[in-house]
Design a protein around this nucleic acid. Sequence first.
DNA 1: ACCTGAACACCGTTCAAGT
DNA 2: ACCTGAACACCGTTCAAGT
Lengths: 218, 218
Amino acid sequence: MSNQSDSPKRALTRDDVLDAAAAMVKKNGPRALTMRKLAAELGTAVTSIYWHVGNRESLLEALVERTVTDLGEIRAQGRTPATRIVSVTRALRAQLRGHPHLVAMVHERGLTERMFQPATQALVHEVHAAGLRGGQAADVVRSLLFQVVGFVLVERNRERAPVQYPGDESLWDAGAAEHDPALAKGLAAPPDPERLFLLSVRAMVDGLLGERPAERAH
Amino acid sequence: MSNQSDSPKRALTRDDVLDAAAAMVKKNGPRALTMRKLAAELGTAVTSIYWHVGNRESLLEALVERTVTDLGEIRAQGRTPATRIVSVTRALRAQLRGHPHLVAMVHERGLTERMFQPATQALVHEVHAAGLRGGQAADVVRSLLFQVVGFVLVERNRERAPVQYPGDESLWDAGAAEHDPALAKGLAAPPDPERLFLLSVRAMVDGLLGERPAERAH
DNA sequence: ACCTGAACACCGTTCAAGT
DNA sequence: ACCTGAACACCGTTCAAGT
């Protein structure tokens, strides 16, 4: 708990507050950001913070806003439409993982559209290049966005709760795994998120792009 | 704020506490469950609750445990492997949506494996019936579980934050939608989750089942 | 074995008062 | 325009004391 600067006194600015708040969130998550501790960190009275940012909720909102703005563009890589689309989802996932607490905060505040604008634009472009148009293209873009965000949410929660219940093979030995020891082992081991992400995104992209309306009967 | 019963006095049981807590969570979410309000609801001192359930965290844990136990089986429906798998994911999504606050609570507490045991078993069975074995089957099951849970998480957060930023077409008109008005309109309108879920799960199932190792090059 | 009130250490927020 | 301390209404949790 040290002050932001060693110089004897300086006017407290709104950006000072945001910076300190960002540091606290980055270190221990949004839950650990309390107005009082933030004030202590900044060496001011709690009430000064209220003057600069209104209240805790607006503070978090401003924080999210600032982070989203700093996220930067997403560029597709690869030659085929499928690879380019997959590369965009990977870039988006990397962005999200770079700001571990951002996804949940953004979601709780309904800024999703805004946050995913760069990724959406990139996806729209690639999906268009893949030959899709109109409502179908929109569906594909939406499916992919949901997929990536959902995956990251699940992934993050998994990391935070490291030891899963029941944890080992006990559940799958008893015939549940259809007498397939390799399957049982595969389900018992912790998943490799990198691999799983690629696998499922590729499957979805293949499924979405390969779709010919006439072929489908189920 | 009324007491649980009109009979003058009764011994407070652990189940009474859990029941009242469950009702409060169901009504206003886990955040609204405070020990003090719970005590008021039950007409006892706060400290009595501590005697019965330890503390707030164990209370929520017990609640989750009980709900998960009550979730019940999942049965596949349909004739082809693909339809049967999709039916399992739909049933799982319905279960999760039936307990709106459960998913997040379960996740925060690392009970995911346990919660999804019925769905996992059903999926393992169907994936096996589709001809997949070993590690590949495990990957498919995992991908689908991640997909469903992720989708429901995103979906739920979207419902809670109804008006999205920026909200309307303003973003997509300016050439971002590749001069495709139908696409722009599709992205601007709020998604139909039911349709989107089916669409993306089917795409993923197709992609996962249709996979022949030799065919893939990207 | 079960329940109680008092007390502690925290919260977010408001308000009147200072410079 | 900016900062302050005091105060209010909440939290979760502990503890010694009751029956």
